[in-house]
Write a protein that binds this DNA or RNA. Structure first.
Lengths: 345, 345
DNA sequence: AAACATTTGGCAATAGTTTACAATAATCAT
DNA sequence: ATGATTATTGTAAACTATTGCCAAATGTTT
């Protein structure tokens, strides 16, 4: 209906050129104060609003960035996105969100789609399932579109990333269990082709070795990050001839499943069995039997990823410096792993 | 670095016009099969990708829609967004997400910002705090940008919305508590200027009246949707001379706070006191004492909101039909309100 | 009054794509 | 062979905003 007003409309009304209007609105010093005032007033009066599309086409900057995550309805990713938004919004950027549902094929589609939507950059956490085929990162890099990984990354020269120290997270969690007196600690991991899961595993392993405990590979099970899968894997562990007395899980959901299974067998937590999760999902705090977990400061992670992006677009021409930001994880000790005897001392 | 290839590049290479290339790529029937083939092959070979910005500028459609929510790190909103994405993505749309943190001022900024990013429509759930000032919906409507509310809506003529039947949700929850034998049911509401909270309240009230129980306004407390606020309000209720024997809360988080407070006083749930929440957040299912809650089918809500949007853009010229889709809530009965005696019968 | 400097704003190109209209070439009928 | 018809492609404008270059217009100096 009411067509949007353009600088041409303003120009026509004032009997000047669109160029002048543009300059006036942009505070170009070559415009007289009088004209500037007049233009500004008329613009306001006519409800003028700059068409960002035209600007984007002209300047080659869309002021949109893409964020690709496995899924959005998880607290971790939602929080990272929140961090990204908090940082980017004040700079005039918008965030376009894509979910991969953990499928590489969708991931590839998403990247293409964002690319021809002319995003100024892509922040992403890679998906873990699908064939081994290479992704289309080359395209991105060739087009000089900044790419920044967070959490789940891939080693690509020249690409920045923001992660936590997953090795340390795994180590801390395991060390904590050992401090609680646990002797036979199992690990519910996830697809270890993904760096973060491999590192959590390595941290776990190292802590066991450093403390002179026996490392038993059969106590490590790769488990999808779902409650039911956690139950299943825990069944296997508890049915072993020599069952473990603690579980360190690389997922809170899996830890929850584990707890359900353990309780259903009448085993007391934490007295007889300790459990530690990973990600510090809100429910770990809410549970009556609150769950010890490793916090990844997701909002902070998002903020920093956004900052790195801003740096890279700022640098435009300069040497493209690869940054690898590593945040420190924090172990949130709760009831699921805190033996009262230890608490007492 | 490697400049993106445009239709001009293809045209030049083939010694034809950009117009012909454009037509060939778009399957215009006026182009010979031979040329079409040639152009398509060359385009593929040169890694051509349509510049969506240019298209957007030309056509006036950006293929972006804005989604405005109070916050993204809540399962409900994240799930709605997921539904919207699922529906819109296959149609070539992208979703731009904005959070208001429940502040009207931010909401206004968001709308402006999305508008001059030339979004093709806005789906939103309004914020509940801030001054009473009118919002800038008029602008939207004048510009003929489709606006669709979901969940938290406002009554605006000509604007479609997707909600659940909150009255029914409130009624069902309360009826369920009455069926369990509860006699004195309190309600932890929220800002009742927001339609959904008002309706849940009205449903609650009606159920009480229909069942011949005494309606006591002092048992209704407006409470922000936070765990701690839930505890506070529950303290007040329990300290009353004639305390309630059940709580229907319009928020799961508040219900959780209530449960914490009740338990801390040694009152048994559900035997002595029943609690029902609203939203069916995942943790209500996970808790050892699982919480009865009203499911709002958020993913479905998002899908439908997206469908309504697609209809409206499709209609373009036709009569702008206002649609009010109302979904049916589902009461998920769990331990926090299920007395074993009743279970037995 | 002439010469020069300065201010101000117009012209036209640019970004990449689409499309109404025009033009050319080829085919067919008379 | 001429005109009519069709098939295919080209021309140029449009979408909106920005910007280098240039031209008036104004003011200043001698």
């Amino acid at each position: 209906m009411s067509k949007k007003t353009t600088i041409y409309d303003i120009a026509e009304k004032l009997n000047i050129t669109a160029a002048t209007v543009s300059r006036a609105l942009n505070g170009n010093p070559k415009i007289s104060e009088a004209t500037r005032q007049l233009v500004n007033d008329t613009a306001k009066e006519m409800n003028y609003e700059q068409n960002k599309l035209a600007l984007a086409l002209k300047s080659g900057k869309s002021f949109n960035v893409g964020v690709i995550v496995p899924r959005i309805d998880s607290n971790f990713f939602a929080s990272v996105i929140r961090g990204v938004e908090d940082e980017l919004y004040p700079q005039g950027y918008h965030v376009i969100i894509c979910q991969t549902h953990d499928q590489k094929s969708v991931e590839i589609e998403n990247i293409n789609s964002l690319l021809n939507a002319q995003v100024d950059g892509i922040l992403m956490s890679i998906s873990n399932s699908g064939p081994e085929e290479t992704r289309n990162f080359d395209q991105l890099l060739k087009k000089n579109v900044p790419l920044i990984f967070f959490d789940r990354k891939e080693k690509i020269p020249g690409v920045s990333s923001v992660t936590i120290d997953d090795f340390k997270g795994g180590y801390q969690a395991t060390q904590h269990l050992i401090n609680q007196g646990c002797k036979r600690i199992a690990h519910l991991s996830n697809n270890r082709k993904i760096e973060i899961f491999e590192k959590r595993y390595l941290g776990y392993k190292q802590a066991i070795i450093d403390n002179g405990l026996e490392f038993d590979e059969s106590l490590v099970i790769e488990t999808m990050s779902k409650v039911d899968e956690g139950r299943k894997s825990t069944k296997i562990l508890l049915d072993m001839p020599e069952p473990p007395d603690a579980i360190f899980s690389s997922s809170d959901f899996v830890a929850l499943g584990a707890i359900q299974e353990i309780k259903s067998r009448g085993i007391n937590i934490p007295e007889e069995f300790c459990v530690v999760g990973f990600a510090n999902e809100p429910f770990t705090r809410f549970m009556e039997l609150s769950i010890t977990s490793v916090d990844q400061s997701p909002v902070e992670m998002g903020r920093i990823a956004a900052q790195v992006f801003l740096e890279e677009v700022g640098n435009s021409k300069k040497i493209k410096s690869e940054r690898q930001v590593v945040l420190t994880p924090e172990l949130m000790i709760r009831k699921s792993s805190l033996k009262s005897s230890v608490l007492a001392k």
